[in-house]
Amino acid sequence: MPSRDELRDHLIRTRIAGDVATSRENNLDHYRLLAERDPYLMLGLTLSEPWPFRDILALMAKAAGVVPDPEHLTGQDTIDPERVLDALDEMAEVIAGALAVPGARVLLATGHPAGLLPVHLALGRLAVAHGATLLEPAEGFEHVNPYFGRRRSIRYLEGVAILSDKGAFVHSHEAEPMRAMLAELGDDRPDLVIADHGWAGAAGEAGLLTVGFADSNDPALFVGEAEGKLAAVVPLDDHVLPRYYAPLADYLVTQVTRALGA
């Protein structure tokens, strides 16, 4: 496992944190759209509080480390590597608590198969090694993407749910696939969901113990965390090269293992 200092340096060097690729303009646009309750940015959540733009920006500055100044309108934005590290530790405690229960049932899903999939795979293997069962409900479920008009289906890779479009794993913000998975499970609910994008939002909205990953331009999961619907959300750039996430996954797996006393 990398040390905390080593991982911090790696996060900054690979732009998982620090000066990230997501532009300030894109972040602010998404905060405004969430304030207007744009369905694409809601990620399957409903919000209890008003959450105007200024409050979303203030939350994202605190939770993810974006620039707090509302007059900073263009150019570079940031994710605080210290907040990433703290959130990884928080996530590890939640995962360890769930895996400490014999026979835990875990649901994993990612809308970023070209980025975050290696992290989910590592956590799935860790869960199985500690006696958990990875659930695979609604495999083959099909629906039409409401934003692009494409028919997509749920497929699993080593227990991780991903959307497929004619054989290709695809990026997705959608919440409907997770809703279909939970509907098939019925009362046989998972003990833990590890996910991102709409997969995580829909699970948190359903009242499940949920942890997730989110970029600085996906504020809904952080708002969901603030409202108590998600247990932990790790801020990061969610679309760097997949191999760059390996040290982060190693750190997270080790922290979970330590928390379990294994």
Score class of each variant (00 low, 15 high):
21 A>D: 11
116 L>R: 07
168 A>N: 13
138 A>Y: 01
8 R>N: 10
160 V>M: 11
147 Y>D: 14
60 M>V: 08
158 E>Y: 08
148 F>Y: 12
213 F>Y: 15
214 A>Q: 06
255 Q>H: 15
162 I>Q: 10
33 L>N: 09
186 G>H: 06
21 A>L: 14
70 P>C: 11
183 A>N: 08
133 T>L: 12
158 E>G: 07
239 H>I: 03
226 A>W: 00
78 T>E: 14
123 L>F: 04
108 L>Q: 04
219 P>V: 12
248 L>S: 04
64 A>L: 08
82 E>Y: 03
123 L>K: 01
6 E>D: 15
124 G>Y: 03
249 A>F: 02
96 A>H: 06
112 H>E: 10
64 A>M: 10
22 T>F: 05
83 R>S: 06
105 R>L: 10
152 R>S: 02
164 S>P: 00
112 H>C: 10
194 I>F: 04
135 L>S: 04
152 R>G: 00
142 E>V: 12
253 V>M: 12
222 F>G: 08
119 V>L: 15
251 Y>D: 05
65 G>W: 00
137 P>L: 13
230 L>H: 02
160 V>Q: 08
177 P>R: 07
227 E>T: 13
50 P>N: 12
49 E>W: 10
217 N>M: 11
261 G>Q: 10
82 E>K: 04
121 L>S: 07
194 I>Y: 02
139 E>M: 08
21 A>C: 04
106 V>N: 02
5 D>C: 04
87 A>Q: 10
153 S>F: 01
51 W>Q: 08
91 M>A: 14
62 K>E: 15
76 Q>S: 11
246 A>R: 14
185 L>Q: 04
228 G>P: 14
249 A>L: 06
35 A>H: 02
76 Q>R: 13
140 G>C: 11
221 L>A: 05
132 A>G: 04
220 A>P: 01
70 P>Q: 09
255 Q>T: 14
199 W>D: 00
130 H>R: 14
41 L>E: 09
89 D>E: 15
106 V>A: 06
25 E>G: 15
54 R>C: 09
204 G>R: 01
91 M>C: 10
183 A>I: 02
34 L>R: 00
93 E>W: 01
136 E>H: 07
196 D>L: 06
198 G>K: 01
200 A>Y: 01
132 A>W: 00
70 P>M: 10
202 A>E: 05
133 T>E: 15
59 L>Y: 11
149 G>Q: 06
71 E>Q: 13
237 D>T: 14
257 T>H: 04
44 G>T: 03
241 L>Y: 11
227 E>G: 11
77 D>C: 09
262 A>T: 13
99 L>E: 03
70 P>N: 09
90 E>K: 09
132 A>Q: 01
247 P>W: 02
